[in-house]
Each structure stands twice: as structure tokens, then as C-alpha cells.
């Protein structure tokens, strides 16, 4: 089968790959680029484990064809910590014990990053609804929400110069 050539920017680096037209962006990230931090939990857009940021918006990479990545800008969990420094959300997730098994964590972090970029002062209810597409079976979400709201607080304090 003839494959499609795709060039796309992933975590700031231009990448190229060949893919089958039926492959998803998730397949390409994992199987072609070995960026396995993005997880597959369902393959049908119901669990959010495969969340990545695609041209600034959080999406399910399982519901995007790999070929659609052509010329786009993609951020994955592997690009979240920069220069050896964890992102504030990553730090807060550790501090609040907001992960148990950790399989949903990359997706939730990507979705939370998109939330805080849009709104650095979400209410608990806003955070819960924003993250409704990210299933977690271990935590009951309690500590996740605490971590996200605490990260938002820290981001606000930093931007206020406190």
C-alpha cells in the first residue's frame, strides 16, 4: 500500500514520517516516532488518554488521521517539561498525589495545560467539566482537581508578580 509522507512540528521540532492513510495521529506518534507518552485507552475519543495539543487546541489524537498532521504544530506530554524543569502542572500533580496508576496522567496534563492557558482561574466546576473527557479510574478525580486548581493559583501568582 502506498504510504503518505507527512511533515509536521512536534514539540517544536520538525518531524517527518510515512504512514498508512488509515493510521491515526496517535498511531504515528507512538509507532512511528516512539513518543509513547501519549496513551491509547479506547481509540474512540471517549477517554482522553491520547490528548495532545494540535495547533493550540487540545484534541484526541485517536480521532485525527496521521495525514492530517501535515504542516501542523503538535505538543505532546514529552514536550511539557522544558530545559529539565517540570511544568507547574507536573509539579502539582506530584505534590498532590494526583496520580495513582498514571496512565491517564499525560492526557489529563495536556488537557489541563490547555485549560489554564485559556483560563488561569477556573472554578472547580469549570475544571471538572473541562476534564470530563479525560477518564481516570483510580483517583475519583479529587486530587487531580486539587492539583489543577493549585497549579492555576501558582500561575496567577507568577503572572501577578507575587
Amino acid at each position: 500500500m502506498k504510504k503518505v509522507h507527512v511533515s509536521t512540528t512536534i514539540n517544536g521540532t520538525l518531524k517527518e514520517f510515512l504512514c498508512d492513510t488509515r493510521e491515526t495521529l496517535l498511531d504515528a506518534l507512538r509507532d512511528h516516532m516512539l513518543l509513547t507518552g501519549t496513551k491509547e485507552g479506547c481509540g474512540t475519543g471517549d477517554c482522553g488518554s491520547c490528548s495532545v495539543i494540535f495547533d493550540g487546541d487540545v484534541i484526541c489524537s485517536c480521532l485525527t488521521l496521521a495525514a492530517e498532521a501535515e504542516g501542523r504544530n503538535i505538543e505532546t506530554i514529552e514536550g511539557m517539561a522544558e530545559g529539565g524543569e517540570l511544568h507547574v502542572l507536573q509539579k502539582k500533580f506530584l505534590e498532590h498525589a494526583a496520580l495513582q496508576c498514571g496512565i491517564c496522567t499525560p492526557g489529563i496534563l495536556m488537557a489541563s495545560k490547555a485549560l489554564l492557558k485559556k483560563n488561569n482561574n477556573p472554578s472547580e466546576e469549570e475544571a471538572r467539566f473541562w476534564l470530563a473527557g479525560n477518564l481516570c479510574r483510580c483517583t475519583g478525580y479529587d486530587k487531580i482537581i486539587n492539583a489543577v486548581l493549585d497549579a492555576a493559583r501558582e500561575i496567577r501568582e507568577e503572572s501577578d508578580g507575587v
Binding site: 511539557m80 506530584l94 498514571g102 499525560p106 496534563l109
Partner: peptide, 23 residues
């Protein structure tokens, strides 16, 4: 006490290797 988990950084950076992450 409540120290941070030893497998935590791998899990928040996408480096932890789960069942499907081996090649």
C-alpha cells in the same frame, strides 16, 4: 509522611513504560 512517589516524574513526563509502550 507523604513523600513524592519514586515513579512520579516518569509518569508526569510520559516516560513511564506501560504495557503497550515496549517495542
Amino acid at each position: 509522611t507523604r513523600p513524592e512517589r519514586p515513579d512520579g516524574i516518569e509518569k508526569v513526563t510520559g516516560q513511564a513504560r506501560f504495557g503497550a509502550d515496549a517495542y
